[in-house]
């Protein structure tokens, strides 16, 4: 009988989570029906959240579920439903224009090269650092302490975006 160690269990969980994330991401690109693509995006987001949880960054994981999987995906699905005027089965077909293929290919190659370079050239710490117990408190101190101006500026930026969206939707009344 072979012995399982804690390490292999952690690895197996990571492989399963990573598999779901990558399958979801492939689904976003490959499904012909754009609703299916949007729903696969939910699984990708959930997979990323699970990776955060596994890395002991629970706060980030919960926020990832709340904001990306719970809100932004719903927004995307809503937008798709409201804008869709064709048959659902043929809404996400691969493009036939060569220019688009060229642009997409260039971006993919560039991103792949930078990721491979980043993974290959960086020095990884040899010992696993002990995860922080109270990551929420530390995040709060950083956000409302050292980086409070950037944090508030982002909040104002979002407020401006919301006002802009309302003006775009409702129009400006001429007096």
């Amino acid at each position: 009988m072979f012995e399982f160690s804690a390490f292999s269990l952690y690895d197996a969980a990571f492989l399963a989570i990573g598999g779901v994330t990558i399958l979801g991401a492939l689904g976003v690109v490959l499904f012909r029906n754009i609703i299916y693509s949007a729903l696969s995006l939910v699984f990708t987001m959930l997979g990323v959240a699970a990776i955060y949880f596994q890395l002991n960054a629970g706060f980030l994981g919960a926020i990832q579920i709340l904001v990306y999987a719970g809100a932004i995906s719903v927004l995307i699905i809503f937008a798709v439903m409201l804008l869709m005027n064709k048959e659902a089965r043929r809404t996400n077909l691969p493009t036939t224009r060569t220019k688009a293929w060229f642009a997409g290919g260039t971006i993919t190659v560039m991103m792949l090269a930078s990721i491979i370079a980043a993974v290959g050239f960086s020095e990884w710490p040899k010992t696993a650092l002990q995860g922080v117990d109270n990551s929420v408190g530390m995040l709060a101190e950083l956000m409302l302490g050292d980086y409070v101006i950037a944090f508030e500026a982002a909040a104002i930026l979002l407020l401006v975006a919301v006002i802009g969206a309302i003006i775009l939707a409702k129009g400006v009344e001429n007096k």
Partner: peptide, 25 residues
């Protein structure tokens, strides 16, 4: 015993919207 239990509860609860949207569509 999750140290962000309350937040986890809220974020998990937000996912049920997707299920309803799937059912409706």
């Amino acid at each position: 015993n999750l140290n962000i239990g309350l937040l986890f509860f809220i974020s998990m609860g937000s996912l049920s919207t997707i299920a309803l949207l799937m059912a409706g569509w």
